[in-house]
């Protein structure tokens, strides 16, 4: 299934002839306190060695806090390849980033992450997923009149009789925020699939960085909910927000809420310039 991070789209849901509006309001929300955030995304770019990898650790903040950058420093980060026990140590860069230049990625292999931070241990296990090459990118115009916008569709082949899941990441020059889209081959197995990206600000000459990742089914479920919840889905069709559950846990305190996810996957990258 194709889920899209539609930013202002559903603002338009409202029936045009009614005097309706969206506006920013002040709301009081609670603060559940700082929790560890593990952004452990191992990306193996097709055609490279994949040895250089980064894991980011940070802490969560209050919802309306303007200081977004709270790095988690002083952690010990190790990833183990499960079949042969090879260990990869990620060095603390003192800014929340932990890096290694010796990672050995292997498709369909299982890896385990272990983090020591603030006297606590956190672990996760995942498998490295593959992705196919991008066939082509097509640019079209969607909508009409006032709501016309440029849209691109990224086409790639989906392997038949295998359950595949994909994450599309779009970084356009017109929008400082990334766009994420998830896709499953549930209805499109074996066909040429596409992931689309659109933005009302796109104009000729704008560039769009396109990354397509292979992901697992568990990560697909996670990122799909994340995408739906982080977007501004205004209008009558409300999503009921749920607590995002990542795959990292504290084995000594399973009730501790650990944010983020440990995932591994192949990635194809390209850049497209809007015509």
């Amino acid at each position: 299934m194709h889920k899209t991070y539609k930013h202002n789209l559903l603002v338009l849901i409202v029936l045009g002839f009614f005097i309706s509006c969206t506006d920013t309001v002040d709301v009081d929300v609670t603060d559940a306190g700082a929790r560890l955030v593990i952004e452990a995304s191992i990306n193996w770019e097709k055609g490279t060695s994949g040895q250089s990898q980064t894991i980011k650790l940070s802490e969560s903040t209050a919802f309306f806090d303007n200081n977004l950058d709270v790095p988690a420093i002083g952690a010990v980060v190790v990833v183990t390849k499960d079949d042969d026990g090879m260990q990869f140590i990620f060095e603390d860069q003192n800014n929340g980033n932990y890096t290694t230049n010796e990672f050995l990625p292997e498709i369909d292999q299982s890896y385990t992450l272990e983090i020591q931070y603030n006297g606590q241990t956190y672990t996760a296990t995942e498998t490295l997923r593959s992705v196919t090459e991008i066939n082509s990118i097509e640019q079209t115009i969607e909508g009409a009149g006032d709501e016309e916008e440029i849209q691109i569709k990224v086409f790639f082949d989906d392997p038949f009789a295998v359950e595949n899941y994909y994450l599309g990441e779009f970084n356009s020059s017109v929008n400082p925020l990334l766009t994420l889209t998830s896709l499953s081959d549930e209805f499109t197995d074996g066909n040429e699939n596409f992931i689309e990206f659109d933005n009302e600000e796109l104009v000729a000459g704008a560039t769009v960085g396109v990354n397509i990742y292979g992901i697992s089914e568990a990560y697909y479920n996670f990122i799909t909910i994340l995408i739906e919840q982080s977007g501004e889905t205004d209008g009558p069709f409300q999503t009921t927000p749920v607590q995002l559950k990542g795959n990292c846990i504290n084995p000594n305190n399973p009730d501790e809420e650990v944010l983020g996810y440990f995932r591994l996957g192949e990635v194809v990258r390209t850049t497209y310039t809007i015509e």
Partner: peptide
């Protein structure tokens, strides 16, 4: 009743809200 966020975290270049109890707000 609605579910309001109780915090946020940075992931993949985005700010993601965290939620806890369903329909508590």
């Amino acid at each position: 009743p609605v579910t309001y966020p109780n915090g946020q975290f940075q992931y993949n270049g985005l700010s993601i809200p965290t939620y806890s109890e369903r329909n508590a707000d």
